[in-house]
């Protein structure tokens, strides 16, 4: 085996020696181009938030870094647009946080509980429950958006955090994910725990939850990003400016670009940056967990 692979490497090496430079340079060129395509808009936004709006309007993005960062940040975070004067960046940030965290937390807690019941109990209607829950994977919220909206209205949950979060939880992605994971946990673990005298609640808390740490972290990141980035549902459910999230508020941000004589590029781009940064940072910092969670959820 080692002989063969060493031989293969040798072949690769001799073959590469002639092509080495050109091919590698080409590979890197493509990757750098791709990275730049991804990065360019971010750089433009970073440049414009430091520049006075008038300058941006006339010249567009340039290579100079201006001095307006503080001012634009202040305008974005603490000055309100709209009629009520309540949707400051700060307030929208708070709402986005609540939506992202609340959604992730709710989804994980409810999903884990349901998955635990399905995998670890002898339940007569387990198959029925399974199908009831997993059918929800088939239809995204978008196709049943109007009736969902009506229900939330009837329940008096318009402009509330529960109205924002709970209907979004009504799909089984996390449940499905944890079911897959629980099924891969060795059978003997529950047997050993039962002989060790652990009941269902003890087993869950002492063994299963600590064992799922990585999975919980991965799910949390994915769900946080998903919740934070929700747009259509918040657009329908929150009419009160006080309840706007950053992503929901983007529409108003766009309108500030349109309406004014001098479009407020600095402020608008700052708000867009603030809407982008938290989920992006989470994804970058917890990259390995996030990738694991994402790619394993389809198995």
């Amino acid at each position: 085996m080692t002989d063969i692979s060493a031989h293969a490497h040798a072949i690769a090496q001799t073959r590469k020696r002639t092509w080495f430079k050109l091919e590698t340079v080409f590979d890197h060129a493509i990757l750098i181009l791709g990275s730049l395509l991804m990065l360019l808009p971010l750089l433009i936004m970073l440049q414009t938030v430091t520049t006075p709006d008038l300058e941006t309007m006339k010249l567009g993005p340039t290579f100079t870094i201006g001095t307006e960062l503080d001012d634009n940040f202040r305008k974005a975070m603490f000055e309100a647009s709209g009629f009520s004067g309540q949707n400051t960046g700060m307030n929208m940030l708070k709402n986005s946080m609540i939506l992202g965290l609340g959604f992730a937390l709710g989804k994980i807690v409810i999903g884990m509980m349901a998955a635990y019941a399905i995998v670890y109990f002898r339940l007569r209607f387990a198959t029925l429950a399974f199908w009831l829950i997993f059918t929800t994977l088939l239809l995204p919220l978008e196709v049943r958006i109007l009736p969902s909206y009506e229900i939330v209205q009837q329940l008096g949950m318009m402009n509330t955090y529960q109205g924002l979060i709970i209907p979004l939880i009504a799909s089984a992605t996390a449940t499905f994910f944890f079911r897959q994971f629980f099924r891969s946990v060795p059978e003997e673990l529950i047997e050993a725990a039962r002989i060790d005298g652990a009941g269902p609640i003890k087993f869950f808390i002492d063994i299963l939850v600590p064992l799922s740490q990585t999975m919980i972290a991965a799910m949390f990141i994915i769900m946080f990003v998903y919740g934070w980035n929700q747009y259509l549902w918040p657009t329908m459910i929150t009419t009160d400016e006080n309840m706007y999230t950053l992503v929901r508020g983007i529409k108003q941000i766009v309108q500030t670009l349109e309406g004014n004589n001098i479009p407020e590029f600095g402020r608008a781009n700052m708000l867009a940056l603030i809407a982008i940064l938290p989920p992006v940072l989470v994804v970058i910092f917890f990259q390995s967990w996030f990738v694991k969670g994402l790619t394993e959820s389809d198995k």
Binding site: P186, E188, L189, E191, A192, A193, I195, D206, I207, P210, L211, Q213
Partner: peptide, 11 residues
């Protein structure tokens, strides 16, 4: 009971 794959609690 002693199990084939040990069934130790990994955490």
């Amino acid at each position: 009971m002693v199990f084939q794959n040990y069934a130790l609690y990994p955490h």
